[in-house]
Every structure is written in C-alpha cells, then in structure tokens.
C-alpha cells in the first residue's frame, strides 16, 4: 500500500483518524508520519504496526487468512505479533516494511539451519575454542584428552 500523503513511498504506519466523528484510516510512510507528528516510535508490544485500521481497503485485506493459523492481517495488527511461522509468508508484503522499520534491514545475517554460509565464522571460533582446550590439556599433562582434542581439530578442518 502506498503512502496516502506523498503517494510514492510504501506505507508503514497505519492510523485511525477521527474527524467530526467520522473514522477513517490513514496509511503513511515513515517520512510522512514523522513530518505530520505521528508517533512512529512504538516500543511497546501491540503497537509496532500502528492502530488497526478499518477502511474499505482493509476489509479486502481482512478476508486473506493465514493457511496455518487462520489469522488475518488485522488480527496481527491488533496483537502486534504474528500467529505462526507461515504468517511471514502469507503476509510477506504487509509485514515487510514493518520489519524493515524495526530492524533497519530485512536481510538475515548469521546462522542458518544448513550451517552455511555465515557459519564459516563459527567454524573458526570452534577451532579456536578447541585449540584453547588443547593448550590447557597439555599444560595439565592430560595427554589422552589432548590427543582426542587434536583429532577433533583435524576432523573440523577436514570438513571444510
């Protein structure tokens, strides 16, 4: 959804406005929200996504349900938390900007289930840990253990 003020950026913040008793929803990008004095810093749970909006456009959105947990995006808006891992797929577009505005990025860096590629760093430090243990084992004349650790280091290197 585009920002209703500048009509260029993606809207990230959703507000419910009340003018003369008529409720309408406003969707703004971060810039416009800030320049119009809306609160864009919402550190408390339940408010990351702004206030749940109730416009006609949102009613269409309401009909889309997550296949695993059956939540709609409005359910997520009102909780400030998602219902299941699948929600991140179902509501990928809706959640994308919110995630970027929380973290400043939407690209994971670090460990992965398959252990690649960021795990190279971890492998290195694992080796470092083992080397530390090896030194300690030799110091305490625990040669049996030292030999075992040395084998582990070899195995670790062999895997790479």
């Amino acid at each position: 959804m585009l920002c209703s003020k500048c009509k260029t950026n993606q809207a990230t913040f959703f507000y419910t406005q009340s003018i003369n008793g008529n409720e309408s929803s406003v969707a703004l990008c971060k810039n416009c929200a800030e320049t119009s004095g809306m609160n864009t810093v919402s550190p408390l749970f339940g408010s990351f996504f702004g206030t749940p909006a109730k416009s006609t456009r949102d009613i269409q959105r309401q009909s889309k349900k997550c296949s695993l947990c059956a939540l709609t995006f409005n359910d997520i808006l009102s909780m400030g938390k998602v219902g299941c891992p699948e929600c991140y797929n179902t509501f990928k577009e809706e959640l994308g900007d919110t995630i970027r505005s929380i973290h400043g990025t939407a690209k994971h860096v670090g460990r992965t289930p398959s252990g690649t590629p960021a795990n190279e760093i971890k492998q290195l430090s694992e080796e470092e840990v083992l080397r530390g243990k090896l030194t300690e084992a030799i110091k305490t004349e625990n040669y049996e253990e030292a030999a075992a650790i040395r084998d582990k280091i070899k195995a670790l290197k062999g895997e790479n």
Partner: peptide, 16 residues
C-alpha cells in the same frame, strides 16, 4: 526464512 532468519512470534526477535 532466508531473508528473515529464524521466525519468531514477535517480529522484533527475527534474524538470529
């Protein structure tokens, strides 16, 4: 998820 990392109930905990 390769973009969002490990998926968590609260979006603040995504990634690692």
């Amino acid at each position: 998820n390769s973009d969002l990392g490990y998926l968590t109930r609260c979006p603040t905990n995504l990634g690692t």
